[in-house]
Computed example of a mutant assay.
Amino acid sequence: MTDRLPASMAGAVDLSGLAARHARPAAAQQPAPGDGDAPQGGVGVIVDVTDADFAQIVELSRTVPVVVDIWAEWCGPCRQLTPVLERLVTGYAGRLVLAKVDADRNPQLVQAFQAQSIPTVAAVIGGRPAALFTGAIPEAQVADVLEQVLAFAAQEGVTGRLPVGEPGEQAAEPTEPPLPPLHQEAHDALDRGDLAGAIDAFERAIVANPRDGEAIAGLANVRLLDRLQGASADEIRRAAADAPSDVDAQMRVADLDVSGGHVEDAFARLLELVASTTGDERQQVRLRLLDFFEIVGADDPRVAAARRRLTTLLY
C-alpha cells in the first residue's frame, strides 16, 4: 500500500497509449464538463470496464477520482476485497468511481497497470495513474487509502461528483434471488472472517447435493484462503526452495501462485509433483489440482490443458 500517493503518481504507468488506441472520434466526444460538474450520460459509481472503453474512464478521472480494481472470477482474495471496495465507494455518494477490470478478459489493462498479482488496486486522477495496493487488506486500511485518494485529488483540483445523490438515495437495483440457505451461511461466515464456519457450511451443502457446483467452487476458494491465512509469501517460497522434495512445501507455493493469479505456474508445479510422486502423496497433489480447477473455472483453457496433462500422467 502506498503511503505517499503523490510519489506513486509521479512515475507510475502510462495510460496514454491505451487511451489513444481506444479513444472515440473527436466528433463523438462529449463536451468537457465544467469544474466540479459530473459528466452526463448516466455513469454509475461502480462500473465494469474493458480494454476497449477505458479511455472514457481516463477522461472521467479528470472530473472525479477513479479507483481501479483488477480482479478475476477464480481469485479468492478478490471475493473478499471487491465487496468492500463497492460498499465504501458507494458510501462516497459520487465523489469516487470504482472501475472493475476482469484480468482474464482485459490483458492490455493488466499490462498497463503492471499488475503482477491480483487483486491489484490502483487509482486514476486527472488522467494520471497511481499504484495503491495488492491483495485483500482489512476494510479500515482500504478506507484509509480511499481518503488519501480523495485528498490528493483535491490538491489536483479533481473534486467533481457524479449525480447519484446521498447514500441511500440511489435508484434501487433489481433484487437478486436469495442464496440457498447453506450458501448464505457460508457467505455470512466469510463476512465475519470465519473461514472455518464457511468451510463447514459449504461442506454440508455438498453433502446435501454432491453436484452443487457453486458450493464445490466456494469450498475450494475458502480452503485456499484458509491455507494461506497468516502466511508469509517469502517464507513459503524460501521453504520450498530449501526442500524441493517436500510435497507440502511445494503445494503451498502453488497455493500462493494461484492466489496471486499465476495460474500456469501453479499448474506446472503440481503436474511436476504428480509425475514425481506415488501413492498417497500423488493423490494429495491430484486433489489439490482438482481444487485449483474449481477455483479457476472449468471453461478456462488453462484448466483444459492441465486436465489433459494430468490424465496423461495418471493413466
Rank of each mutant, 00 (worst) to 15 (best):
His22Phe: 08
Pro39Tyr: 00
Val43Ser: 04
Cys75Ala: 07
Gly41Gln: 07
Leu15Arg: 00
Val45Ile: 08
Val67Asp: 04
Leu81Val: 12
His22Asn: 08
Ser61Arg: 01
Ala12Tyr: 09
Ala7Gly: 14
Trp71Glu: 10
Ser8Pro: 13
Gln56Glu: 12
Ala20Lys: 13
Arg21Phe: 11
Val64His: 03
Gly11Trp: 15
Ala27Pro: 14
Gly41Leu: 00
Ala12Asn: 11
Gly76Asn: 03
Pro31His: 03
Glu59Pro: 05
Gly11Lys: 15
Cys78Phe: 02
Ala28Cys: 08
Arg21His: 09
Val47Arg: 05
Ala32Arg: 08
Arg79Asn: 12
Ser16Glu: 10
Val66Thr: 02
Ala72Glu: 04
Gly94Gln: 04
Glu86Thr: 14
Met9Arg: 08
Tyr92His: 09
Arg62Gly: 06
Leu18Gln: 09
Pro31Met: 00
Gly94Met: 03
Leu15Glu: 00
Cys78Arg: 02
Thr2His: 12
Asp69Arg: 06
Ile46Arg: 10
Trp71His: 11
Gln30Pro: 11
Leu85Asp: 10
Gln56Thr: 04
Val47Ala: 07
Pro39Asp: 02
Gly11Met: 12
Ala20Gln: 11
Pro39Leu: 01
Arg24Ile: 15
Leu18Tyr: 10
Asp37Thr: 15
Gly76Thr: 08
Glu73Leu: 14
Phe54Ala: 01
